[in-house]
Simulated assay, not measured.
Amino acid sequence: MTLTAPTTYKSLTEEAAIELAKTIQAFDHKAQLTCREIGDGNLNYVFQIEEAATGKRLIIKQALPYAKVIGESWPLTLKRATIEANVLKKHGEFVPSLVPAVHATDEALAITVMEDLSHLEIAREGLINGRQFPRLSQDIGEYLAQTLFHTSDYGLHPFEKKRLAAEFSNPELCKITEDLIFTDPFFDVDTNDYEPQLQAAAEAIWNDRKLQLEVAKLKKSFLTEAEALLHGDLHTGSIFAGPAETKVIDPEFGFYGPIGFDVGLFLANLIFQTITREGEERQEIVAHIEKTWEVFASSFTELWQTQSVESFKETEGYLEYVLGKVLADAVGFAGCELIRRTIGLAHVKDLDSIEDNDKRISFKKQALQSGRELILKREQTASIKDLVEILKEARI
C-alpha cells in the first residue's frame, strides 16, 4: 500500500504519526491511539503507535535527511527508505518469518509502516546482557542462504537479476560503506575516532602496506561484484531476537554486492562477543559463529541442487569453489568490520560500554589484531573452524 502524502518532505511529529496511522486504516477511526518515538539510531525516526483498548501496535519509520552523529552538514538521500521497504518485501518473499511485514510506504515522506517487534529484543543489547538466543544462528544462516541464493544468478534468470540490480542501485549509502569500512580506518583521517591509548595500534594499521593491499582487494570486490541483493548492514543491532523468533530489520544499505559481505558483517559482530567473553560464555558465541556458516552452507547447497538455474551446477567442484570464495570473502569483510568498529567513526556498544578502561583498551587491541589476521589469512581459511582458530591465536 502506498500512502497519499505531501509532495515535499516534512519531519513527522508524534501527533502526525497518529494521524498517518489512521489514514491507512490500521486501526478503527474511533480508536484511542498513543505514540512515542523509540528510535535510538543515527539515521531515522521510529514511532510506535499503540491502541489503548487492544494493545495493538505498529511502527512508522521515517528516514532523516542527514546523519544525527554529524548533523545537517552530512546530507543523506531519502531514497534509502524506499530501498529499505523494497528489500524487506523482496527478502520477505523467501523468508517471510524472518523479516517484519511492510504495511504501507510513502516515498515523498520517506516513510515505511511496518510490523511492531517490541516483544523481541535487539540482539546486540541482549548478547551484551548475557541473554541467550538459541535460534539466532540457525535463523540468520537460513536468512542468508535464502535471500542471497534467490536474488543471485544462481537462482534467477539473468534478465531478472540485472533488472533487480538496477532497481536496488544505492550509490549514496554504498559510498558511506566504502568510506567507513574500507577506506577511512586504514588511513589517518579526521573521521576516525579512538582512545589515545590506541594511537600506536592505529598507526600500525595505517603503515601496514601488506594489510592495505588486501583491504584494497576487498574494497574492489565490494565495488564491482554484484552477486546478490544484500542487506548491506547486517550487524546484531539490525536484528530483533527472542527465545524462539528472529527478525532482520533496517536494510536501508541494501544493494547488489558480493555474497560474502552480509555473511562477514554478521560474523564480525558475533566476534566482538567472543572478545569480551571467557570460558563457556565465549564458547556459546563460537558455537553461533560455527552454526551460522554451517546452516548457510547447507541451505545454500540444497538450493543449488534443487533450484539452481546455473548451467554449470553439475560441474564437479564448482559449488565448492563458490562456497569457498564466499567464506574467504566473509572472513576478509569481517576483518574490515572489526577494525572500522574499533578505530573508525561508528563503534559498537559491545566494546564502548565497558567501563574498565584497561580492559576496554585490551579488548579493542584484540579486535584490531583479530581484524588484521582475518584479512591477511582469509584465502587460507578453508573452513569455519579455521576462522575460529585465527580468533584464538589473536587473543591477547
Rank of each mutant, 00 (worst) to 15 (best):
R277N: 14
Y154F: 15
S383A: 14
K359T: 13
N192V: 04
G279H: 12
R209K: 15
E320R: 11
E195M: 08
D179C: 01
A204F: 05
E310F: 15
V46F: 02
D184E: 13
R395L: 03
H119V: 02
Q273V: 00
D358A: 15
I339P: 04
E284N: 07
F333W: 03
K385E: 15
K79H: 14
L98S: 06
F47G: 03
Q283F: 05
D329L: 03
T224V: 05
D350K: 03
A367V: 02
A200W: 01
Q273T: 00
E93V: 00
I111Q: 06
S221W: 04
G130V: 02
G141F: 05
L218Q: 06
T82W: 10
D250Y: 07
P75D: 10
R372F: 03
S299F: 00
L3K: 10
Q307K: 15
K22L: 15
L218W: 08
T191I: 14
H29L: 12
H91I: 03
P196G: 08
Q146L: 10
I339W: 07
N170H: 11
N42C: 04
P158E: 11
L88Y: 10
K10W: 00
S362W: 01
E393C: 03
E14W: 01
G344N: 09
E203D: 13
A85M: 07
E355I: 02
L327Y: 05
D386V: 08
Y154W: 15
A346R: 05
W74D: 07
E160H: 13
I205K: 11
L368M: 14
M1N: 12
I128R: 11
L265R: 09
L387H: 05
K377D: 04
G242N: 09
A17C: 06
I396P: 11
L12D: 06
P65L: 11
H157T: 02
A287I: 00
T183K: 14
T2V: 12
L267R: 04
W206I: 01
N86F: 01
G264R: 04
K89P: 00
T276W: 01
T315Q: 15
E278W: 02
A166E: 13
T77Y: 08
I18H: 11
R36W: 00
I38N: 07
K313L: 09
A63I: 02
V87G: 05
T306R: 13
I128S: 03
E310Y: 15
T54N: 05
L234Y: 05
Q48L: 12
E142S: 13
I60Y: 06
L76D: 09
S362V: 00
T54F: 06
K89C: 01
L234R: 07
D28Q: 12
R340P: 01
T274N: 08
E125I: 02
A31F: 06
E389H: 13
P243S: 14
V348Y: 05
K56N: 12
K349E: 13
A328R: 14
I289F: 04
L117P: 09
P6W: 10
A63P: 08
A85H: 08
S370W: 06
I343S: 08
K359P: 00
Q305V: 02
F182L: 09
L33W: 09
L156S: 12
A204Q: 14
W293E: 04
F272K: 02
T224K: 14
G130M: 06
D358R: 15
L120Y: 05
T82N: 11
A367H: 02
Q366S: 08
G232N: 10
Y9V: 01
D352I: 05
L164I: 01
T191C: 12
G335A: 03
D153P: 00
L88M: 13
